[in-house]
């Protein structure tokens, strides 16, 4: 009896243990390593923690972190909207696909970083350029996955919808997009991680604020603990973004996971 009652508690503890275990170990390893070496480039965790609090819980939060996150959010949202809208149009329109597919291969092969000087000339050196850099890299996984997802709708479902005359916007909303949603979500997941990287990279050009700028600035100014604290912050943002994505995915794809669980028996 006691045993069964304790099981959920033990389960939760185990889950926390698994989630926190590796980071804790890494921290410990870091502490031990830095304790011995005393290298200025590898400050101990305590120093980094102090630098973290001093650097990011202050004006830097509003001058660097928030603008970065804002550009990241706008860039990613734009990428998702453009990717899904264009991907749906292309996935459902044969001639559009034949026309554009070779072009995609071309543009997809261009790393966003090399577009920066061009984008800088076209869009200036402000937020729009940085957002464009993010979009130029993030839009592809969403777009291409949407095309695949839209094309891959089960033919039986398509015929069912046709025979019941479910068409146009209704078909998009209730048939095509949900059917493509597992692939769209996979594209969004990629989009998010690429977006974080490009957020940082875009701030290394013609910049004077932002998380990426600040990390490079610290590195250039030999403020090593501060630089590490920026890297830690980036990592934490990555974890937060992944968590938010996980919540959204569970809501959007609850049917998909449920179905797969049933199929697995």
């Amino acid at each position: 009896m006691t045993r069964t009652r304790l099981r959920p508690v033990a389960g939760a503890l185990r889950a926390v243990g698994y989630a926190a275990g590796l980071p804790a170990l890494a921290l410990l390893a870091w502490a031990l390593a830095t304790d011995r070496s005393a290298s200025i480039y590898f400050p101990p965790p305590g120093t980094i923690a102090n630098a973290f609090a001093a650097t990011w819980f202050g004006p830097a939060f509003t001058t660097d972190v928030l603008p970065s996150l804002g550009r990241f959010a706008v860039g990613v949202l734009l990428s998702i909207v453009i990717g899904v809208v264009a991907g749906t149009a292309i996935g459902t329109t044969r001639w559009l696909r034949d026309l554009l597919e070779p072009l995609f291969e071309f543009f997809r092969a261009v790393p966003p970083v090399v577009l920066v000087p061009v984008l800088m000339l076209m869009l200036g050196v402000g937020d729009s350029m940085r957002i464009a850099v993010i979009v130029s890299g993030c839009v592809w996984p969403v777009l291409l996955n949407t095309v695949e997802g839209v094309r891959g709708v089960d033919t039986v479902l398509t015929e069912t919808s046709r025979s019941y005359r479910v068409r146009g916007a209704l078909s998009l909303r209730y048939v095509v997009l949900p059917a493509a949603s597992p692939q769209i979500m996979a594209g969004i997941r990629l989009c998010l991680s690429i977006g974080l990287i490009l957020m940082v990279i875009s701030e290394m050009f013609a910049s004077s604020s932002g998380l990426g700028y600040r990390i490079v600035y610290f590195q250039r100014s030999f403020m090593i603990a501060q630089m590490w604290s920026g890297i830690v912050l980036l990592g934490l943002i990555g974890v937060a973004v992944a968590t938010l994505y996980g919540i959204a995915e569970r809501r959007v794809l609850h049917w998909y996971h449920g179905m797969r669980e049933v199929a697995r028996g």
Binding site: L157, E159, R162, S163, R165, Y174, A179, S181, W255
Partner: peptide, 19 residues
């Protein structure tokens, strides 16, 4: 597909919207 006709397919698993 005419409006006054309804179809039931063999592959019921694939003809219902799982979402």
């Amino acid at each position: 597909p005419p409006e006054k006709m309804a179809v039931v397919f063999q592959e019921y698993g694939r003809s219902l919207y799982p979402w």
